[in-house]
Each structure stands twice: as structure tokens, then as C-alpha cells.
Write a protein that binds this DNA or RNA. Structure first.
Lengths: 250, 250
DNA sequence: CGTTGGTTTGATTAATGTCAACGCACGTGG
DNA sequence: CCACGTGCGTTGACATTAATCAAACCAACG
């Protein structure tokens, strides 16, 4: 399967052949990490940047009362902690949700990558779009009902996995437990269970094995208030009028 | 009063005299914006970067049902939309909560600033620490009770305003309405009102006019589970052992 | 003064959390 | 091959939290 971070970063900048080759090189050295392992723990000082090649991971914090809040899902192509060395100590942990193939990239290698202006731009885009996703999660948890929150997450996962060719038009690999889901959306397991059931009863989604199928994408988006604009996936709309290349018109 | 963004960015890198002079230069051209005005609206294409010199602003989105979710408070020294031009269209709005002095900086000027490696590093630090704050907000809304959420926000505001010398040990300017507070924390106005009362009844805070006084900082932190690590304000802890300068020991 | 924006209060309803039990599939070791 | 343990999903009863509704209140301001 295609290198997911090339697919992803291509949404952020026009990468040259050379850029793509360099990104592919990184893909060479990936390590397989088992399910439910920390890639990096709170309090650690990162020395490597982690890239997800296959599988799902998450950012999380553990609260005073022992509960866990998941703050992000990290999908194939996602960069876990780009430049986080600038902040020093990790203020949160990163753990695998499934078995993952992960590239451990030394910070020096990342630094070299930023020598390419297009990769540099793509990495900025990547950071800013992570932040945009985080903002939307805040809106989701702060402003929507339990069932809408679940629906919104599924819309997002479908869209993001689509960007890296890990989803069909309406289905994707979904191996999370209801506890993972509940911790991601700030609700109890019971509520997660009942929200899932509600979406199934409405005929919006179906779960078969570890596959989640969205039976009516438009309806799920409408129901959850999902607007993909925050993913900033369509680069052409971003170029100012003067920046359009002739070959891009048409 | 001292230029707040110099104070703030100094937490992210060792700025030279020259760096500081350049940042001060930006401060020259500030504009006063009235309360409750959009600095930039959702859907717009930003051409300038906005820096808050005085006053408070916020990032927000309006949901389908008309409710507003505030996703960040922007305080003196905060950069509203650094490099957001890379994403193109704004996926959210930025509005003043009070009258503000704002610097409108053309993106080219920002680009020139990044020529200084230390300013560049400080700007990366700034972006990453914005993201860390966002993560903590998610944890706050996702995992804590209404009263704890309010308490946590006050702890954060105190700490952040302290970094830019806009707060005493335990008090700061607090002009927000209960609606602003409610929209920031994903709760109803009534709940915001009652949470405030609870904190006052417990003797943890006091409001006199537009000043909020934290009567027992430790108690408020313990109650809300506030841990300032996510603000990454103490740069010395971040330098690796080999990077400590002799003049920094002692 | 009357209007406006903001705060406060009580009553009621709706949403969600908690507790406890049960079921089911899967894997392991006797 | 079966018994058992474990992790996960499901369910119902109940407690708690927070949203909603509606009214009153208050201060600032033209």
C-alpha cells in the first residue's frame, strides 16, 4: 500500500519527485509495536519523532481520578510529535490502539527534511491541520449530544482515512473498543454503547467484525453537523487567485 | 507596560537584543478594536497576522443550532493566526471579548521575522504551546465537572497572564460575561452562574468589579486538577543537560 | 425613566453517569 | 476436548448532573 505520509503531506504542498523520494526513504525503517503500548509517555523527553505507517494510535492524558481522556486519534500518515522537542517534556502520552507499524525518526532527520521548502510547508500544514482537528474536537465535545459526537467522529475518521487511501467511499477499519470511544468523546462506556446502538437503529452505520460501514454518509454528516472544511484537504481552494497555475484551471 | 509578545516569546527561546528590537517595532502600529467585533470571520482568507497587545479576544465557532463554542482565549502577547494562511480559508472566527489593541502584521513581515533562528524557534514554541493549551481544554471539558472546569480556566488565565506581566500573584482583569464563560466551557449560562457561586461560597475566588481574585491558589489548583506543565513556561527545564550554559547554573 | 444587557433564582425536564449483573466469544491450560 | 478466566459488550434500575424555561432583578446609560 502507498506510503501514507506522502499521501497525507501532498495535501499540504506540491511535493517534488525528490521530496517524495526522501519521504519514502523514511518509510524503510519501521518497527512493529503491539496493541496498547505507549510510544511515548507523559514526562518523557522525546528524542525521536514517531510516524504511523499502519494501525491506529492515540494521544491521551490520565486525570486525577484515574480516568483517561483521549485527545486525538493518530492514523496512518500521522506524525505524532513533530517538533515537540521544542516544548521539552511531554505533557501527554501516546499509545497504540491497535498493533502499529511505526517509523522512529531522529530529530536531525526531520531537520534535514525541512531543508526542502515544500516539505517544510507541508509540515507546517500538518501541524496547523492537527490543531484544526483539535479545535473541532473541542466543539464536538463542548457543543453536541452524545450520539452526535459519535457520529461526528465517524465522519472525521472516514474523511481522514480517505485522504491516505485507507478507506473506501463509506467503510473503514474500526478496531476500537467502546471504552476507547467513550474516552475519546468524554462520555461513559454505557453512553457510548447506547449512542452506537442509536446510530445503528437509525440505519446510519453498521459494524461487521472490525469494519465500520457508514450506510448513509450525507445523513450522518447532517445529523452530526460535520463540515469537512476544518480538515483543509482541498489544496486548490487555498491558492489565491493569482497563484492558480494554468494547468490547474479546467 | 512592557511589550507582551516579547515577554511571551522569551519563554520559547533566548532572544537577542536585536530580536527584541524587531519585535518591539511591530508594537508600534497597533489599532484599537471595540468589544465584540470580529478580527477575522470564518470563511475569510487572512492577509494579516493579528497580535493582541492589550485586551482579550477569543476563537470561536458557531454550531448548526446557533450556539457558540469558544475554543481559546487570546490574551496580551498572543498571536491569533500565525501561518494560518497556509491553511487558506479560516475554519473559525476570532472576536474581541473586550476592547483590544491589536497589531495587524502583514504575512511578509512575519516571514522576515522567521529569518532570525531564535524568533523562528520562539514562534514554533508559540504554536506548539497553543496546541498544548487546546489539548488541556479538551481534557477539561471532556473529563471534569462544571465547577472544576471554571476553576481550571481561572488557574490557566492566572498563569498565562502572569507570563506577560498582566496579573499579580493572585488577581487579574476579568471582564467576561457569564455567557462567554459558559460558551468557553460547554455549559449553559445558568450552570456557569451556579459554578461561579459555588467557587465563591467555598472561598476560593472573589469578584470585585472586573477583577477576579483567587483567594487560595493552591486550593483552586488542587480542586480543578490544574497542572501548569502544559504551558511549558519554564524553559530551563527544557534544555538538555549538555545545553545548559554556565551562566544559567547557580 | 425606560431600555438594554447581564445576573440570579426556582421549578421542571432531559441527558448522562453509576452500579450491578449478565452474556458472549476467545484463548489457555488442565 | 472441556472448564475456566478474561475482556468486552449489553442491559435495566437508579442517582446525579446539567439543560431548559420563565421570571425577577439590577445596574448602566441614553
Amino acid at each position: 500500500m502507498a506510503n501514507p505520509w506522502t499521501l497525507k503531506l501532498a495535501h499540504g504542498a506540491d511535493l517534488s519527485e525528490d521530496d517524495i523520494a526522501r519521504l519514502d526513504q523514511i518509510a524503510a525503517g519501521t518497527v512493529t509495536v503491539a496493541r496498547r503500548r505507549d510510544l511515548i509517555s507523559e514526562g518523557e523527553n522525546p528524542t525521536h519523532v514517531h510516524l504511523i505507517r499502519e494501525g491506529y494510535a492515540c494521544r491521551y492524558k490520565v486525570l486525577e481520578d484515574g480516568s483517561r481522556q483521549i485527545m486525538a486519534w493518530l492514523l496512518p500518515g500521522d506524525i505524532c510529535d513533530l517538533h515537540i522537542a521544542i516544548l521539552g517534556e511531554m505533557d501527554h502520552g501516546i499509545a497504540t490502539l491497535t498493533q502499529c507499524d511505526v517509523a522512529f525518526v531522529p530529530v536531525e532527520t526531520v531537520y534535514e527534511l525541512t531543508m526542502s521548502p515544500q516539505i517544510n510547508r507541508a509540515l507546517w500544514w500538518n501541524t496547523l491541520s492537527d490543531e484544526a482537528i483539535l479545535r473541532e474536537w473541542l466543539v464536538n465535545i463542548g457543543g453536541r449530544s452524545a450520539t452526535q459526537r459519535v457520529a461526528h467522529l465517524f465522519c472525521e475518521l472516514l474523511a481522514r482515512l480517505h485522504m491516505v487511501e485507507r478507506a473506501t467511499e463509506n467503510a473503514f477499519h474500526y478496531p476500537a473498543t467502546q471504552r476507547d470511544l467513550a474516552d475519546s468523546l468524554g462520555m461513559s462506556v454505557v453512553q457510548a454503547n447506547r449512542s452506537l446502538q442509536a446510530l445503528k437503529d437509525e440505519g446510519l452505520i453498521a459494524q461487521t467484525g472490525r469494519t465500520l460501514r457508514v450506510l448513509d454518509v450525507d445523513a450522518l454528516r447532517t445529523f452530526s453537523g460535520f463540515n469537512p472544511n476544518y480538515l483543509h484537504a482541498d489544496r486548490r481552494r487555498r491558492l489565491g487567485p493569482g497563484l492558480h497555475l494554468a494547468t490547474r484551471r479546467g
